[in-house]
Design a binder for these strands. Structure first.
Lengths: 331, 331
DNA sequence: ACCCCTCTTGAAATCGATTACATAACTCCG
DNA sequence: CGGAGTTATGTAATCGATTTCAAGAGGGGT
């Protein structure tokens, strides 16, 4: 016996049938007689035959791969989304490739978008140029690319931001600030708009807006900026557009000896796992991350399958109240 | 003109050469005359030809994919490692597939190990049964699988734990505890051994050992256990086998009104990005995560290329001192 | 002028599966 | 018992590139 991997023809010979029959047993068992089928299945077991996917994919003119373009893999926000996608894709016979659009160069991203490498894309980064993606199945999740006509799976960011700000206002805060995401980002804009809207609707002054970029470090900088304000001008509640920034913000404020929520209430956005364990635990907006991943994957599979259901999906968020928000201190 | 993707034969016809020549221009340009080469390159540009990877891979009997098996994608510890791997693999023409061994079922993992899906594996989970992986290029990173003969890329966990404990002892702590990882895990064992060794070498009592599993939540539980001890028996310094656990531990201790490092000094392990921003900032052992990923990928590529350099690589760690460790309180 | 060698190029086989089409066998019914 | 219809299987083309082998072109030495 050679130590080569057995091919379909080896199975066919052993079972005394043609390769066509073996192939049918593999992909469409019910159209083969039970008798023949068992013959073939025995042969498969005996030879230890395993299908060669490259060959099947070549014939099917597909790749069996789906790529997720993530802006920053180190952000734990994305990991559950990926898990949700994998949970849908694996049973459907698709591999999930993950690419970090920040660390990977533009060429690499372009390489992934290559139709002969993947059957479709799930884009979680709104900052990619639309033309990079080519004309093929794409689903946008969380963020989206303004010019691009593709189904989106997202939350209502504006309404979520409104919820967050309303909570702070309900506690009695009147000077509410916002740390936004990177300029130009669609989430930044929607969350800022929601925050402004909520304040306006209650007759409160517009928010002090500090710029961030969703990262921990930018949250820390925002904390430093907040501290640098004259005490009388500091907002007494801050709504930050990501949990990572909220962590950085709180860290900086605490390092300088102030206390959350005594000196400032803080709301985050995302509900990453960690923030429930901080001191104080972070009040935040929970995004259904796993569901986002699953729905995005389902949507993409449908598109690959030819369904033109280009409908956006909006998933519900949840307001999670913990220790980082409290009524303002009596002056 | 049809809107089909152009194939190599379309390019060949336009250039007036054979497909063999086009293929040579694509993969071995220098063996073709400059003249012909330009002809072909023009034709490629004109047709907008793009190589079909499934076909090439079929012929080459390779898949162009490498899979990383990660125990828990949500742990940010892994993301930089993955980035490091991708940085090496992409230029070499390999796709990186990422699979979470916890969320993916055993079947899925087995599917990835399938030779016709990927050319090699990088395993970051020591809990996989060795026989799942089959007989093919494998590199173990961080964790390893005792029975399996494969090159490892790792740090010296025992020495790193010794460093951590020595730091606590240098500060003057005498009752030092340890929160270990999941039982049976190789990292758990090495780190525990290093901690015990360091204490013994200094004539200090063996550590109180609490069991964890590297997760945030298990760190929180350890914090609760620590709090439940009679105050006189509590170790006044704790070394935890992961940063995630250290976060959970500190969170729990602080929630109950005690202070770090006043009431207990805490050392973590990994140096994930976030812990520099907590209050107090966490003292920890920094693993060179990106380098681990890069070296593992390089090693795997070498193995795929046929090099049998089955050498283990041990990378250096760094002791990072921040605010969570301090001399014990005077009693 | 002839032979040998090197360098380019093309024709055809190949990678390993899938599937359109053909064929054989069998059922059913008039 | 013959012909139509159904079902199970085999033959061979096909997916799109790579590569072996052979042939032709040109160069150099004698």
């Amino acid at each position: 016996m050679e130590h080569q991997r057995p091919k379909i023809i080896d199975v066919a010979r052993l079972a005394g049938v043609s390769t066509a029959t073996v192939s049918r047993v593999l992909s469409n068992p019910q159209i083969v007689t039970a008798e023949t089928r068992e013959l073939v299945e025995d042969a498969i077991r005996q030879t230890g035959y395993r299908l060669n996917h490259a060959a099947r994919n070549l014939r099917h003119r597909r790749t069996g791969g789906v790529v997720a373009l993530v802006p920053n893999l180190s952000n734990p926000f994305f990991s559950h989304i990926l898990a949700g996608m994998a949970a849908v894709l694996a049973p459907a016979g698709y591999n999930l490739l993950v690419a970090d659009t920040r660390t990977a160069g533009g060429d690499t991203v372009l390489g992934y978008a290559e139709p002969s490498r993947t059957d479709g894309l799930i884009v979680l980064d709104g900052a990619l140029p639309a033309d990079v993606l080519g004309r093929r199945p794409v689903v946008l999740a969380c963020e989206w690319i303004p010019g691009l006509a593709a189904p989106r799976v997202k939350i209502d960011n504006r309404a979520a931001a409104t919820m967050a700000v309303n909570h702070l206002a309900d506690l009695g805060h009147r000077r509410i600030g916002h740390v936004a995401g990177p300029p130009g980002n669609v989430l930044t804009q929607a969350r800022l708009a929601g925050a402004e809207e909520a304040l306006k609707a209650r007759g409160l002054p517009p928010p002090l807006v500090l710029q961030g970029d969703f990262s921990l470090e930018s949250g820390r900088r925002a904390g430093a900026e907040w501290l640098a304000l004259p005490a009388g001008e500091r907002p007494d509640a801050m709504f930050l557009a990501s949990d990572a920034m909220a962590c950085g913000f709180i860290g900086e404020v605490q390092h300088r000896g102030l206390s959350v929520p005594r000196d400032v209430s803080v709301m985050g956005f995302d509900d990453i796992e960690l923030v429930a364990h901080m001191t104080p635990a972070l009040s935040t907006i929970r995004q259904p991350r796993e569901a986002i991943g699953r729905r995005a994957a389902q949507c993409l599979l449908a598109m690959i399958g030819g369904d033109p259901l280009a409908e956006d999906i909006v998933l519900p968020v949840e307001l999670v109240l913990r220790g980082s928000t409290a009524p303002p201190r009596r002056q």
